[in-house]
Amino acid sequence: MGQAMPHGAFRRLVDEHYAQLYRYAYRLCGSAETAADLTQETFAKAHAQFSQLRDPARAKPWLFAILRNTYLQQRRQEKNHREVPLESLEQPAASDIADDPYDVNPQRLQEALNELPEMFRTPLILFYFEELSYRDIAEQMNVPIGTVMSRLARAKSYLRQRLTIRPPSDERRQ
């Protein structure tokens, strides 16, 4: 803490952003417990570095960036994180397409997110959360906006395939 803590300002920061940060953390890691830890750790770091936040209007991307970096740090320490390369997914056969492709199953959605490499998962989550602009996402990931868009397109394509293929339980019923 480089300076005296503006307690009220930081309290507002927590009140305004904790819920959405938790949702982002949950979708990133797929675990309620880890998401709560990540959110707490994010605010603890933000509290310690609050003097570095020059523009309060940029608090949201700042917090999202801290959370993502914290998540990446923790994940580097894990050895057994499972991700699949996007190329490994085959195109679904026509008969495998679910009757209502837009009836998204929450569990299958999280499974699909967990399988995505982080570089694709983050822009996808942030796109659907509509919390950050594309410029903010690009800055946070330290890549050009065009790269964000191409990753988003590939991630959406993967997600569409994972969510529209009929799950094995459906096949057994028929």
Binding site: D103, V104, P106, L109, Y128, F129, E130, L159, L163
Partner: peptide, 9 residues
């Protein structure tokens, strides 16, 4: 559809 579910946490 995805946005609706993804934000349901």
């Amino acid at each position: 559809a995805v946005a609706r579910v993804i934000q349901q946490v």
